[in-house]
Simulated assay, not measured.
Amino acid sequence: MFNITNEIKKAFNGDAWHGNHVMQTLNNVNPESAFSHFVPDAHSIAEIALHLTAWTEEVSSRLTGKPAEEPAMGDWPEPEGRTPKDWERIIFNFKVANEELIRVCEAIKDNQWDDELKSGGSTALGTGVSNIELVNGLAQHHAYHSGQIALLSKF
């Protein structure tokens, strides 16, 4: 059987097919540039990292049976500060969120991966989506934003 937990592990900090895993991409960011807006009307690297954390936490929440909602942190949280220490905290929180997600995934039984999520206040947030589709989507989300961060970090 396909092991979706391995896919999120690879996207987070493993041997990702697409290149650097997202933790490596984040760790390569210069803390002084993490909060810069290099492209007008685009998010900073720090904002993308917070967005990744928010959705990782939301996926864990959904997998534990809570209804699909917007992330508790919001879709695009703003950084609380803009120092190298703040950047370290953002990376640390992303790491913790992914480690928790992996623990949640490892606790899911094989016969539960096809179960559909509980829908929350908005049908667009989860109706008809299975647990495996949710985690697969998050792995793709990690890869997509890792690419954005890699490009932005070249500025």
Rank of each mutant, 00 (worst) to 15 (best):
N3D: 15
I8A: 02
K10I: 02
N13V: 03
D15Y: 04
W17G: 02
H18F: 14
H18E: 07
N20H: 08
N20S: 11
M23R: 07
M23E: 05
M23K: 07
L26T: 00
N27H: 09
V29L: 04
V29S: 01
V29K: 02
P31E: 01
P31A: 00
E32D: 09
S33N: 06
A34V: 01
V39T: 12
V39F: 13
H43M: 15
I45C: 01
I45M: 01
H51D: 05
H51M: 08
L52N: 11
A54T: 10
T56Q: 10
V59R: 03
R62I: 10
T64R: 15
K66D: 12
P67C: 10
E69D: 10
E70D: 12
M73H: 08
D75N: 09
D75K: 12
E80T: 12
E80F: 03
T83P: 03
W87K: 00
E88S: 14
E88T: 12
I91F: 00
F92G: 02
F94H: 13
F94W: 06
V96K: 14
V96E: 12
V96G: 01
E99K: 14
E100V: 14
L101N: 00
L101D: 01
L101E: 00
I102M: 06
I102R: 01
I102W: 02
R103L: 13
V104K: 03
E106S: 03
D110V: 09
D110F: 03
D110M: 05
N111I: 09
E116C: 06
S119K: 11
S119R: 09
S119N: 11
G121L: 07
T123N: 11
A124R: 09
A124Q: 08
A124F: 08
A124N: 09
L125D: 07
L125K: 13
N131M: 14
G137W: 05
Q140E: 12
A143R: 03
A143W: 01
